[in-house]
Nucleic acid binder design. Structure first.
Length: 293
DNA sequence: GTCCAGGCTTTCC
DNA sequence: GGAAAGCCTGGA
């Protein structure tokens, strides 16, 4: 993408951002480590950094990030090498998606840390976004490294797998309020820490095989697996079917109740290799408008 | 092999 | 008090 970077005193100014809206990006449910500040800016923790983003039009004011860090981390985190204009054009051939894209025009799929994403989405099962955010934050505050204090809040990085693997199920359940998910978090962390499960190889295998491999982890079913693949492993064809996607697909496309398999297959059938992008536009659209509820 | 009901922790609306 | 970005188990 052709944008320009400017360093102005303590802030980094990113100009001429296209297909980029910080609210759409953080509030489409793909990421849990962010805070909406009173001035409408977003503070996010990623890559061992705490950054604050305030968007005005196509300009982004960034606090806490140096130019080198933007180029070395945030550029890729925000998926800025991808041509969203082309993706949106192709998906807009579908009239329903055209509407969803008009609504969430600035959504981008973040490239997030694999382990943090795996843990976050195991926690997401049968859970609500505010609670998921609290649990992820509690884990980081307890086991992560202190980064800095910003607007009165202390921020910590997300820990390495070994840290959670060392804790007991009881401790994890009570300290982070994750209920029945506690032992899954411990076991998955242990497998990754011990090298039993190699996350890096998932980048190199195709979506279907990657999904099968991830679902061998306790707490990772088809939906959670597709979320992890879409948000951390660059698998744009992954189509996570959650309650909102079920609602929106039944409401707009099937116009009747659909089976689990019909819903899972509909991503590839309707949107092909862009199913994951379609899913995000539809999810944001459905949830913000309460469609099918 | 596939499908489905019931249970699961806790909090938020 | 029901619902929540579901998964796991057991049984048909």
């Amino acid at each position: 993408m052709n944008y320009t970077l400017e360093q102005s005193q303590s802030k980094l100014i990113v100009k001429d951002l296209e297909h980029f809206n910080i609210k759409h990006i953080f509030e489409c449910g793909q990421c849990f480590r962010w805070y909406l500040e009173e001035d409408g800016s977003y503070t996010a923790i990623a890559g061992g950094m705490v950054a604050n983003f305030l968007q005005e039009g196509t300009t982004l004011y960034v606090e806490g990030v140096k130019e080198k860090e933007w180029r070395g981390f945030w550029h890729n985190y925000f998926d800025l090498d991808r041509d969203y204009g082309k993706i949106k054009e192709e998906l807009s051939l579908d009239p329903i998606l055209k509407e969803a894209i008009t609504f969430g025009y600035g959504m981008r799929l973040l490239n997030q840390d694999p382990y943090e994403t795996i843990i976050s989405f195991i926690i997401s099962a049968n859970n609500q976004i505010p609670r998921i955010k609290k649990a992820v934050e509690a884990i980081a505050n307890d086991l992560g490294d202190y980064i800095r204090t910003y607007r009165g809040r202390d921020h910590y990085s997300f820990p390495e797998p070994g840290a959670l693997a060392e804790k007991t199920e009881e401790y994890i359940r009570e300290a982070y309020r994750v209920g029945f998910r506690a032992d899954r978090l411990r076991e998955v962390s242990r497998r990754i820490a011990d090298g039993e499960f190699d996350t890096s190889c998932i980048f190199d295998i195709e979506h279907k095989d990657a999904k099968e491999l991830l679902t061998t982890l306790p707490g990772v079913g088809p939906k959670v697996s597709d979320c992890i693949l879409l948000f951390a492993f660059d698998k744009g064809e992954a189509f996570p079917v959650d309650v909102w996607v079920k609602r929106v697909m039944e409401y707009f496309y099937f116009k009747r109740p659909a089976t689990k398999k019909e819903l899972e297959d509909s991503g590839e059938r309707l949107f092909g290799s862009l199913a994951g992008y379609a899913q995000q536009y539809l999810f944001y659209y459905a949830r913000e408008l309460g469609i099918g509820k």
